[in-house]
Structures are given as C-alpha cells and as structure tokens.
Design a protein around this nucleic acid. Sequence first.
DNA 1: CTTTGTGTAAACAGAATGTTAATATGGAAG
DNA 2: CTTCCATATTAACATTCTGTTTACACAAAG
Lengths: 226, 226
Amino acid sequence: MEVKPKQILIADDEPDILEIIRYNLEKEGYEVHTAKDGNEAIEKAKQLYPDLIILDIMMPRKNGVEVCSILRTQPSFQDTLIIFLTAMSDESSQIKGLETGADDYISKPISPKVLVSRVNALFRRVSTKEAGKTLLIGNISIDPVKFLVTIDGNEVVLAKKEFELIYLLASKPGRVFLRNEILTQVWGNEVIVGDRTIDVHVRKVRQKLGIDCITTVKGVGYKFEI
Amino acid sequence: MEVKPKQILIADDEPDILEIIRYNLEKEGYEVHTAKDGNEAIEKAKQLYPDLIILDIMMPRKNGVEVCSILRTQPSFQDTLIIFLTAMSDESSQIKGLETGADDYISKPISPKVLVSRVNALFRRVSTKEAGKTLLIGNISIDPVKFLVTIDGNEVVLAKKEFELIYLLASKPGRVFLRNEILTQVWGNEVIVGDRTIDVHVRKVRQKLGIDCITTVKGVGYKFEI
DNA sequence: CTTTGTGTAAACAGAATGTTAATATGGAAG
DNA sequence: CTTCCATATTAACATTCTGTTTACACAAAG
C-alpha cells in the first residue's frame, strides 16, 4: 500500500496566506486544497473528506467556528482533524473554538515553521494510535502491512481495492460510511467511477470473506459489523 | 447525510429591505423565504417551519411582536430562532420584544454586515449543542452515526425515513410534533405526499421497535414518550 | 349515528442495490 | 515487445426493499 499523501483543506479569505500555507505544506508532502470562504470550505470538505481542515476564524460566508460546528454535526467529520487560524490571541475565542471541537490553534501572523510542526504533530498524535495498524474485530484481523485478512486464522487474499474498502469500513466498526465518503477515501477524489463499482467490490469482499460483515444501509451507505 | 441549508423566513412590508436581506443571506448560503405582513409571516412559518424568522416590528396585519407571541404559544415554534428588526431604538420596545421571546434585535437602518454576523452568531450558538449526536432516552438509544436504534441493547434496523422520523420525534421527547412539521422536517417542504404516509411510517416504527413510544395526539400530531 | 381523524393491511411503483458477464487496464513474465 | 494474467470497471439485468397510495376498519367526538 503506497502511502497516500494526507489531504489537507485550507480555508482563508486572504489568497496570500492560502499560498504561503499551501507552499509550506506541499513541501512537506501533503496534498493541499483550498477554499476562500466558509461555504466553499464546507462544500469542499464534503467532496474531499480531507484528513485535516485548517480554518481561518475570520472568513466571509460563515466563519471558521461556524464551519467547524456544522461539520462536526455530521458523522463523517466527527474524527476529521481541525485547526483554527486566528488573529485574535485572546483566550476567550480559543476556548470557544476548542469547545466547538477544534484540535488545535495557530495564531496569526503565521510562522511557516510553527505551522508545519503543528500539523505534523497533529498527524503524529493520531497516527500513533490509528495508523496502519492491524485491525482486530472479533475473529477477523485486517493487517495492512501484510495486506492480509484473516478469519479464524484462515488467510483470505483480497485485491487492492477490496482490501482498502474493508480496511476503511472496519476502521470504525458500526459507523455508516456514505457512498461518497467511500468513493473519495478508496478511489480518490479525482477519479470518477460508475455507480455500481462500489457494489461490485462489496460483493467480492463479502464473497471472499465468506461471512456477512458488511451491512447495507439503503439510501445511506455501508457499515462494517460482525 | 447532506447538510441541508438553514431556512430563514423574513417578514417586512418594504420590498427593498426584503430584497437587501434576502440577497445578503442567500450569499451566505442560507435559503430565504419572505412575507410582506404579519399574517403572511405566520402562514409561511407554519408551512415552512424555518430555522430562523426575522420580523419587522412595524408591519401591517399584525406587527412583529404580535407575530412572535402568537408563534411562541405553539410548541412547534418554541425553539425557532426569532430576530426583530426595528427602527425604534428605544429601550422599551426592545424590552417588550425580548419578553415576547425574541432571540435578538437588529436596528434599522440595516447594515448587511451586522445582519449577517448576528444571524451567523445565533446559529452558532444553537448548533454547538444540538449536533447530530446519539439520543438516549430511557432504555432507547438512537445513533445517527451507526444508523441504529437500540432498545435494551437489542438492535433494531429501521429504513431511512423511519429513522429520520423517530430521530426527529425523539430529539424533543414529550413535545408534540404537528403533522405538517413532521412533513417538512422529514420529507422537505417541496415534496407532496399523501395523508396516510406519516401514519404508515409511524406504524412501521412502532412495529419494529416493539414498544409503544410514539403517542398519537389526535387532531394534532405525534410525540415521543416512553 | 354521522363526521372526522387515525390504524392497518395490502398492493404497487420505483429506487437502490445485488449479480453476472463482458470489457478495459496495467503490470509481470517471457 | 508481446503475451498473459489478475484486477478494475462497466453495462445489463435481476432482485430486493422502501416509500407511497389505496381502501377500508375502527374509534372518538359532536
């Protein structure tokens, strides 16, 4: 499994800041997307499902705090990392932001060094616990290192996409993944594939695993469940 | 689960003001509806169940304060946000308005900037607390992340509309939801469905849950109650 | 005992997904 | 460079499930 670059969405109304951040993060190997106001941020977030979203607090068409609370209401963004950019160094707005569910805070003016190290730190923080580790759910193990699924000790060989699919679903057992979400996470956001592609892969996985651990939620998506 | 844009109803007798406000709020991504007097405001409110209602104080056929108190008597509008627009900057009318149950005040002449930021602030205030979280009422849990209803630990699988219905009702246990209200919240205000559609869904939910937690209030609507 | 509103069952249409087979693609082996 | 093979994708068709309506039963209110 090649390491896919982490996707970062930045929202700020100042193009200069956007470009500074983009430059520094791309240099670090991240894939960067941008939005210039709150609504665009929400729109792109739903289209990209990025790993991290950096939100300026002061933005037209919904400020950062608003965007954050809106996104946090959706299951799909419950675990997405969010950083606020703020010119206000005052405590109160920071507290408010953290209440809304931000994971970190960066004050303007931005030092590229600080930015990059904070971003790296955040990813490190989560990646240590949830990184490409073997998932163990019941009698099933899903090992991304060996690229192997094991059921009661019996190894099952999956193709790449099949594996990525089951790995995604099993990373949060029980949680429903929207079809869109699956598409961007497994297929990437620039690829356009037909409607039935997901189904076919789900079918193959179900077939190969032999057990019924992928549940369909009609009109919504799929979830992993033993 | 797509984010539905917030619905805002504006009532003012001056078409220019109506259009200024509409323009600015639509630019922010809200969905705007208008009324040109008090009675129309009430009528549209009952038809749309908007998230926010902006009322001019001085209007023909019931002024803003009257509209507000009338709406506030109904359970359905107990939690609807209401903002008054007023030319009178005198304290007394503001006090009267807040007593009547307005959530905020904006004085004319209107600055689009102030308007927008106040509206945003109001939504931010409420959206932080009422997120898409798991509802726990007695021995029942309703989890939108897993798309699952659990009774005493037993999982019950509901179809999409059924789930949305129970989630709405259970979001405010005890409170009666009018049939119209349920229609607009679950089915949307542009969809037209027959009279028995709600009943049938209620029936299916009751059947699947096995317990009697949806109470009929004849001639009014339904409520969630253990 | 009529009227009004709700409960219920069954039937239906259409949406959403499942399934299969055929085709494309891309990499590895020769 | 070609062939081969596994995987990925599409297309076409089957199937299942949901949502809605219809028709009628029932209950309560007047």
